[in-house]
Design a binder for these strands. Sequence first.
DNA 1: CGACAGATTGATTGTACTCAATGAAGGTGG
DNA 2: CCACCTTCATTGAGTACAATCAATCTGTCG
Lengths: 257, 257
Amino acid sequence: MPNPRARKLQRYIPLSDADKLWLSDVLGPGRQIAARTDIIHEGDDPRAVNVILDGWACRYRQLLDGRRQIVAFLLPGDLCDPHVFLLKEMDHTISAITPVLLGQISGAAMQAMTARSPQLDLAVHREVLATAAVQREWTVSLGCRTGIERLAHLFCELHARLAAVGLADDNTCPMPITQNDLADAMGQTSVHINRTLQEMRSAGLITLRRRSLTIHDPTALAQLGHFDRAYLHLTVDYPSAPFPARTVGSLSIGNDV
Amino acid sequence: MPNPRARKLQRYIPLSDADKLWLSDVLGPGRQIAARTDIIHEGDDPRAVNVILDGWACRYRQLLDGRRQIVAFLLPGDLCDPHVFLLKEMDHTISAITPVLLGQISGAAMQAMTARSPQLDLAVHREVLATAAVQREWTVSLGCRTGIERLAHLFCELHARLAAVGLADDNTCPMPITQNDLADAMGQTSVHINRTLQEMRSAGLITLRRRSLTIHDPTALAQLGHFDRAYLHLTVDYPSAPFPARTVGSLSIGNDV
DNA sequence: CGACAGATTGATTGTACTCAATGAAGGTGG
DNA sequence: CCACCTTCATTGAGTACAATCAATCTGTCG
C-alpha cells in the first residue's frame, strides 16, 4: 500500500523524466474501491482506461447459470486495456479482490499522451502485447497443464509480475486471494485446489499462508509448471536513471527504493 | 483462393476508398505457405505483421514434453498481432493448417498507415481488442465449459467470424480442421472429441463432414455453448459503399459479391 | 461470545483419459 | 486402374483425475 514501487511501463522501455511526469499528472490521485466490488461491468460503456495503482483486481466472465471464470489477475501498475475506450461496451467485468486504489485516464488523455511520446506509445503497446501473451498462457494452462502444474505456473507468473514492479521480496510475495478465487481462475473446485496446495506444501515447494506466498525452490516450481518468463516480455531489468520520486498511490513515477 | 471476400477491418468501422487502396498496396500479392508448416516460430524475431489472405492457420504453444495447445485459429482477413514487430521475439508459434496465402506488412508500413489514417488505426485497434476478447473467451471455455459446450461455442465463434468476412453461407461454413486439431484446441483428446461430435450429431445440432460444418439449430447451439457474439465486436453489419473491387488474395479491399 | 468466511477432510460419483485396435477415405505411384 | 499407404475417424475396455456432496474445523471480527 503506502510504499511507492510499481513501475510497470518502465519494464518495457526506459522512460524520460518528462514522460513520467506526464503519466503522474494524467493519473491524478486515484480513488479507493472496496474489496469485492465491481470496477467496471460487462455491458458498460468504457469511457476511460482504468489503472491499478494499488491492490489486486481480476477480470472475469460469468455464465448465466452462475459459473464464473476469472480470466486474469490485475496487479499494481497494470493498465486495464489501454485502448478499451474505442469499444462500445465491455465484454467482461473487472472487480476488486482487495481494496484497490484506482487511477483513470480518459481516452483523450491517453491518445494525446501516446501521440506525443513515442516511448510511452511503445511502452503501452508492449504492455498490451504482454497482456495478450499472459492470456494465451492461461489458455495453455487450462488446456494442457494438470492441476498442480497450473498452480505452479500461476505462482511463477504472479511472482515475476510482482517482482517487476518491486512488490516481491526475493522468494516471497503477497497472495491476497482465497482458494475460491484460485479455483475460479484455474477452472477447478476449491476442494481440489486445497488438495493440490497441500501436495505442493508437502513437496516442500511453497508456503502459502496469511495471504503471503513463499517459493522455496523457484527452479523446481518453474520446471513443474513449465514456466519460462520470456512471454512476459519484461525486457528492462534495471530501470532507468534516478528521478526525484513523485508518487501516485503505489505507482511510483520515478525510481523506487 | 480465387474468391475475394474477407473484409475484416471494415467490420469494425467503415473505411474510405483511399484506406482500402492503401491496404491493398501495402499487402502486395502474398505468398503461398504449404499446409502444416510454421509461418513464424516461437523465439523468432518478428519483423513484419502477417496477414492471412486465404486459408486457415493457428497459434499454438508446445510444452517440452510434447503437449500442444492451440490457442487461436486464424481465419482469412485476420491480422496476426498488428504490433508484434515491437517485440524482440515471438512467444508462440503460428502454423498453417490448410495451404495459406500470406500477406506481410512491415512494421514501418504499419506505423505509417495507422499514423496517417485515423480510421485504419481505429480499425486495427478494434481488431486487437476483439482478438483479446476471443482469447479470454477461450480461457472461459477451457475453464468452465464442458466438452460439448466448448465445441458448441467454438463452432458458433468460427461461424460468426467466417460470416463476418463473407465465408459462411447462412448455416454452413468451411471447417478444414481435423479432430486432432480440435482436441489440441479444446484441451481434450481426439477420442473424446470424436465422442462429443457424435453426441452433437445425434442431437441434431450439426453436420460435420468433408471439412464442412452445417449448424442445423443455431439458437440451440448458441444456448448450449453459452455463446453471445457481442464479444466479437463486429459492429458494422453492412459494410460501406461500393468500391471498384481491387483484389489481393482473398482479402478484398473493396466490396465483395 | 457468537457469527461468518474461508479452509480442510471424507466418501462417492462421473467425466474424460489411456491404451489398443479397427475402419474409412483420399492420395500416389506403378 | 488398382494396390498401397498414410492420415483421419471410430469403437471398446479399463483407469484416473477431479467434481460433488456434505460435514467439520479454524481463524477473525464485531
